[in-house]
């Protein structure tokens, strides 16, 4: 090889990028695929069982949302929105929006979407906040985890759908995982940031009377970081909603399914209607959680 380059075609090195041999490359990729397939065969079932509780929970929530008579759900939504936002205008808006959604025959899909968003948010919060705390506690953890978060946020979702589907097949759980992978970075980042931004002086006050690590964390850092953590939750919900259509491609029920049908059959109205329903959900979640976050912040603000 070397001989060939130097003597005969010295220039070709510059003109053509030095590539791995075609056969080598094929073997290389095949090797990866094969070993992942082996891994799947070996552990796929165990991993699937690991996620069973999540599946049961999602199915249970979906059934609950769907089997509860719609007026009761409506009342529940109104109560939640009101207590989240303390805004009558927003509450009336939410009720009207859901009435229109139901009237246009999107009730069931909307309930399914609400179920998966709720479960994804719960998963993201319960996994993301501890990771965020870990990152805030250790600089090494931060330098290790930050690039992973970068990858999770920028890699095209279709790329990680491949291994997820290979491992778990098509269904609710892989869909849920895909949503969580995409939606978890903001809550991790903002938990980390929020804790790191807590005033050093205030931390010192708690140190000065001999508080333990967990007391400082739970009593001072997390309460003071709450507005930031809450901004993270808000963003996580938004990102989960934006994954609804992609999740539908691998078997998640909800508003994404009719959108996909609309794309392949060129049903303009169907696509727009369901798309707008997703937008309405997003706006409601956003406004309510922002108002709630502002209330959390109220007395901290008067400090400055």
């Amino acid at each position: 090889m070397a001989h060939f380059f130097i003597r005969e075609k010295k220039l070709s090195f510059f003109v053509e990028f030095p590539k791995m041999g075609r056969a080598d490359l094929r073997d290389f990729k095949k090797g990866i695929d094969e070993s992942f397939k082996d891994f799947t065969r070996e552990y796929g079932e165990a991993i699937e069982h690991f996620f069973d509780p999540l599946l049961y929970f999602l199915v249970w929530l979906e059934k609950l949302f769907l089997n509860t008579p719609w007026p009761i759900i409506m009342v529940a939504i109104a109560v939640l929105v009101y207590f989240g936002s303390r805004s009558l205008k927003l509450t009336i808006g939410a009720v009207l929006a859901f009435l229109v959604i139901g009237y246009l025959d999107m009730w069931e899909d909307t309930m399914a979407t609400l179920a998966i968003i709720s479960v994804a948010t719960i998963v993201c919060i319960s996994v993301g906040i501890p990771i965020g705390i870990l990152m805030a506690r250790s600089n090494r953890a931060q330098t290790l985890i930050t690039p992973i978060l970068d990858v999770m946020q920028t890699i095209p979702s279709f790329v990680y759908l491949i291994p997820v589907v290979m491992l778990l097949g098509i269904g609710k759980v892989p869909g849920l995982l895909a949503v969580c992978i995409y939606a978890i970075p903001p809550i991790v980042r903002l938990t980390n940031l929020g804790i790191r931004l807590v005033d050093k002086d205030v931390m010192e006050a708690s140190e000065a009377f001999g508080a333990s690590y967990s007391q400082k964390l739970l009593g001072v850092q997390i309460p003071l970081a709450l507005p930031n953590i809450f901004a993270g939750v808000n963003q996580t919900i938004m990102m989960a909603l934006s994954m609804v259509v992609i999740a539908s491609m691998i078997g998640v029920k909800g508003l994404g399914v009719p959108v996909l049908r609309a794309i392949s059959n060129q049903y303009l109205a169907l696509g727009v209607m369901n798309g707008l329903a997703i937008v309405v959900l997003a706006i409601l979640f956003d406004r309510v959680s922002q108002k709630f976050g502002k209330r959390l912040q109220a007395h901290t603000e008067s400090m400055k």
Partner: peptide
Amino acid sequence: NEIRSDVGMVFQHFNLFPHLTVLENCTLA
């Protein structure tokens, strides 16, 4: 921590816990 609990400290900038009431600030420790 034992020594810290026996030594009270007052700071130049007060360093009160902004998220707690005056009473809660006092009862926390």
